[in-house]
């Protein structure tokens, strides 16, 4: 976050020195886009916040645990697709899950779907890409994530 701030300020200053008018135009353009997407962003993070309230660590443990078999992969993919967690929360959580017996390949499916698919962020994605493209991308990514998990499971089985 900090490095991003420094980078932004530095680039704005350099740009400003080089061309004042162009810089203001660029900043205005960018912020205008931000304001336009803001209501949708807000409503999406509200829904995510509420959904996350129901997805507790115990809930995850129950559905992803080692007794769950193939079902664990499906649950991992489903939960990962719906939730949206920032990395600084997702990875510590994944660490806890591994320690409590969830297999690495299930975690791989969970992490991959978590990052590649955003069912709850579909409204945002659809504003940019249109609904059809958005749905196709998310569906493809879902199967892609399962594939990644399957290959991971196979490699962990071999080594």
């Amino acid at each position: 976050m900090k490095s991003m701030m420094i980078l932004t300020v530095a680039l704005v200053v350099i740009s400003f020195i080089a061309d004042r008018k162009k810089t203001l135009k660029g900043i205005k353009k960018g912020l205008k886009q931000f304001l336009k997407i803001l209501p949708t962003l807000l409503s999406v993070i509200i829904i995510i916040s509420i959904v996350l309230f129901f997805v507790s660590n115990e809930f995850l443990m129950e559905y992803l645990g080692k007794g769950a078999g193939l079902g664990a992969y499906i649950s991992a993919a489903a939960i990962g697709s719906i939730s949206l967690l920032p990395g600084f929360i997702a990875y510590p959580l994944a660490g806890i899950l591994v320690k409590s017996g969830v297999s690495y390949s299930v975690i791989a499916v969970f992490i991959t779907t978590l990052m590649m698919i955003g069912i709850l962020t579909i409204p945002i994605e659809a504003k940019y890409f249109g609904m059809k493209t958005t749905l196709i991308r998310n569906t493809l990514s879902f199967f892609g994530a399962i594939l990644v998990g399957a290959v991971m499971a196979f490699i962990y089985y071999l080594i």
Binding site: M1, M4, K25, G26, K29, G30, L31, F34, L41, I45
Partner: peptide, 21 residues
């Protein structure tokens, strides 16, 4: 989420705007 959105995204959009021009 709100903190992430309200701090990170405006900066990102400013960079996008600069890149654009």
């Amino acid at each position: 989420f709100f903190k992430e959105m309200i701090i990170l995204l405006p900066m990102m959009f400013i960079l996008i705007g600069l890149f654009d021009v």
